[in-house]
Design a protein around this nucleic acid. Structure first.
Length: 764
DNA sequence: CAGTGAGCGAGCTTCCGCTTGACTT
């Protein structure tokens, strides 16, 4: 048994440190937090100084048992949880759980996981910083109070199972606010004028692309400008050259990795984090949940060697980056490869491309700035006073661009021109351009915004974005956009042509949209708890947490000051017993029955209602369809929805009924269900279309079964993912290269046996 | 696998932040 024991948070980290220290140390991992407030109850005594009730986390009993055993058998125990607020708290909980005296704890901090840094840190242990622990307790208690008092209020006032919190509610607000900005945006258009010239250079002619510095609002102005250009003589007025530098990017943090992997590789934030976790566990990269831009000295030297070796000394530019992120805790290094000489790592395409991205960015961060020369040529003519500009950009020294380019880097060369040079006009276009509303958030852009506001942490960005989607506040969607006409004038060979063309406007891919529920919840929170969903709430309370950490504020007092007025407002809202907040709107009355028609949020989401609630006669209900909005639904649309289930005809002696189920609209015929295609309006479905649907559905059913071996109930079926074997309620994959048509019952049994064995193996 | 929504009342839902698995059609 080793004489010394070191406790860290991550098992992978434990493994790495073991390599550095050898058998003298027993190294264990807590695998994150080990104690927390209870899951099912508030766990805070608000009447008695907010005394928190901490319990060991469920599922952690084995970890805790192992820790206890190891500590008992060790002469000296070092607690080396992460050097940040949460890490300090884990150390403190650990000490309590292991029955150690807080004052006797040997607390060490590894700011980077290198042999030297670890050995160095072990030589000067300190005590637990109880003030930092108190800052964490304040953070934890405040989040619990906000979450566990606001959420039940939403259950009562809006809909069950909803949630609200300091972080998620602000994330939802960002998306709702952006959507409202887009809705309020007034689109305008103006004509952008571009021209193509030829410059004589020796015997050859070179093209120069230029743009008019101003845009025309009115069609008449465009026309008269173009007319005045017919037969005009163009010449260069002046040439302006500027040297500029493009600075190398900082190495990756969690947030910037998510952004770049989203932009360049089209990964969702969850996908990026899962891949990064794999690379980390395989030892290819450093820890992937970090807000630090720091690189260890060892890493700096290693990167410099790699850069110099590949590109030459003049490309190496070692530097340290300082974080600008509010509230950054910098417990780890930036995300980088552990071995820069490895240009490729990872066992599949996605892992390899993410590794490659990290490798390139790390290299770039230690490379020289790029030098570019920006040229602006101003062009005038003898017929009017307007000026055109041609812009060129040439990279004179690529620096970091050798390895790391962003998408918008295009070189645009201009011929050598001097003032007075004549230019021959080939073509001039005036194209109507529309102003763009602000862009909707993608997942990584939302993370970026959250980081700027200081809400959430590297370990919670991806889970928070999943939560707001799981709660139904937000959906990630593609929208195809609509066709939009625009006007274009072309001046060529002395004549002007006017055309109307069409473009796709407002098409989006993988962007976040608020749902009706998201909007209603957001409106409710802004109305009654504006201070908490305020963008600056976190930043303000973080200042208090800092004061607690510095010993200048007492944490119970801080929580008291927050809680009393907050709780009073919760009580106040609860007192208004019969007042709900379901975004209800009266649309009008049904012409047939004369009853009122409403839209509102129901127990299962947005719905329309015919007749009054709380009356003798039960009202009729119908859910809104995808794409229909609480705020914009019309009376006619509502009446359409209420017309279901609807008999649309008869076929083979049975009636056909159209309605909506769990899985969308369907036709019911002879006790069987046939789903409607996603495109198309269920209200407009004709009897002929329904019959076709029924027939193709029957065909599919017939093709589904390849074999039915009867005995032992083994069947070979065609499924969503291709042919498979179904037996005893379980499904089995058919190995590649096997023809499902030729399978015998014996072969099926063999395949099933094999698959059971490999499953048993993978469990171990 | 093919709704639901009143009212009664049981019992459930919920936060943020730190870590990995255990699951697969």
């Amino acid at each position: 048994m080793a004489a010394h024991c070191i406790i860290v948070e991550s098992p992978s980290k434990a493994k790495t440190i073991k390599k550095y220290l050898g058998d003298d140390y027993h190294i264990l991992a807590t695998v994150g937090h080990i104690r927390d407030l209870p899951k099912k109850e508030l766990g805070i005594d608000t009447k008695h100084n907010f005394e928190p009730k901490y319990v060991a986390l469920s599922g952690k009993s084995e970890v805790i048992l192992n820790l206890k055993k190891a500590v008992k058998g060790s002469e000296k125990v070092y607690i080396a949880t992460d050097p940040d607020r949460e890490g300090e708290a884990i150390a403190w909980h650990l000490a309590h759980l292991l029955g150690m005296n807080i004052a006797d704890v040997n607390r060490v901090s590894f700011h980077e996981i290198t042999k030297h840094a670890v050995q160095e840190a072990l030589t000067h242990p300190v005590g637990i910083n109880v003030e930092l622990v108190n800052a964490q307790q304040a953070r934890r208690v405040l989040d619990r109070l906000v979450g566990f008092e606001l959420s039940p209020l939403l259950w009562k006032k809006i809909k069950p199972s909803l949630s609200a919190g300091r972080v998620q509610s602000v994330a939802v607000r960002l998306i709702v606010d952006r959507e409202e900005e887009i809705e309020a945006f007034a689109v305008e258009s103006a004509f952008k004028v571009t021209a193509q010239f030829l410059a004589e250079e020796g015997n050859a002619a070179e093209t120069v692309n230029a743009e008019l510095s101003k845009r025309f609002k009115k069609e008449d102005d465009v026309r008269s400008f173009l007319e005045s250009c017919i037969g005009a003589r163009f010449r260069v007025d002046d040439v302006d050259k500027k040297q500029a530098k493009k600075q190398a990017p900082a190495p990756f943090t969690t947030s910037t990795l998510q952004q770049e992997a989203g932009r360049k590789l089209h990964f969702s934030v969850t996908q990026t984090m899962m891949l990064a976790q794999k690379l980390y566990e395989a030892g290819h990269i450093t820890y992937m949940r970090t807000d630090s831009l720091n690189l260890s000295n060892l890493a700096l030297a290693m990167i410099k060697t790699q850069v110099s070796g590949m590109f030459g000394e003049e490309y190496a530019h070692p530097r340290k980056f300082k974080t600008k992120t509010k509230g950054a805790q910098e417990a780890h290094e930036a995300i980088r490869p552990t071995d820069m000489s490895r240009q490729e790592e990872g066992e599949n395409k996605n892992l390899r491309s993410l590794y490659r991205l990290i490798w390139k960015r790390t290299m770039a961060s230690q490379m020289a700035a790029a030098d570019v020369e920006r040229t602006t040529v101003r062009i005038v003519n003898d017929k009017n006073d307007e000026r055109l500009e041609a812009k060129g950009e040439v990279v004179t020294f690529p620096g970091f661009l050798k390895v790391y380019q962003s998408d918008d880097e295009t070189e645009n060369m201009l011929p050598a021109l001097k003032p007075g040079d004549p230019l021959r006009l080939c073509e001039m276009d005036a194209t109507e351009k529309y102003t763009q509303p602000p862009a909707r958030y993608s997942e990584p852009m939302l993370v970026k915004k959250m980081e700027e506001l200081g809400i959430g942490r590297p370990s919670t960005y991806a889970p928070t974005i999943s939560t707001i989607q799981n709660r139904g506040y937000v959906v990630k969607e593609d929208r195809p956009g609509e066709d939009r006409d625009y006007r274009q004038f072309t001046l060529k060979d002395g004549t002007i042509v006017r055309e109307i063309k069409t473009e796709k406007a407002n098409a989006v891919k993988s962007k976040l949209f608020p749902t009706d529920i998201g909007r209603v919840v957001n409106r409710f929170l802004i109305n009654f708890f504006d201070d908490i969903v305020n963008y600056n709430f976190t930043a303000r309370i973080e200042e208090d947490f800092d004061k607690i950490a510095e010993g200048q504020m007492e944490w119970h007092a801080m929580i008291r000051e927050f809680y009393d007025p907050f709780h009073a407002r919760i009580e106040e809202a609860l007192d208004k017993k019969n007042e709900t907040f379901k975004g209800e709107r009266l649309l009008g009355s049904d012409p047939v029955t004369g009853k009122n028609v409403y839209v509102k949020i129901g127990r299962f989401g947005p719905m329309v209602q015919l007749g009054e609630s709380k009356t003798e006669e039960k009202p009729k209900f119908a859910s809104l369809l995808n794409g229909q909005r609480l705020d914009s639904l019309t009376l006619n649309e509502a009446l359409d929805l209420l017309s279901f289930p609807k008999v649309i005809g008869e076929y083979q002696g049975e009636s056909m009924v159209v309605s909506f189920g769990k899985f969308g609209p369907y036709v019911k015929h002879g006790g069987k269900f046939y789903s409607l295609p996603k495109s198309g309006d269920p209200a407009a479905l004709t009897a002929e279309q329904a019959i076709e649907l029924i027939e193709t559905g029957r065909d599919k059913q017939r093709n589904k079964t390849i074999h039915d071996f009867g005995k032992e109930k083994i069947r070979v079926l065609n499924g969503r993912y291709g042919p498979y074997i179904a037996a005893g309620g379980k499904n089995f994959k058919i190995p590649k290269g096997t023809d499902p048509q030729s399978l015998t019952p014996e072969q099926c049994r063999e395949i099933m046996e094999k698959s059971k064995k490999t499953k048993a193996k993978s469990k171990k």
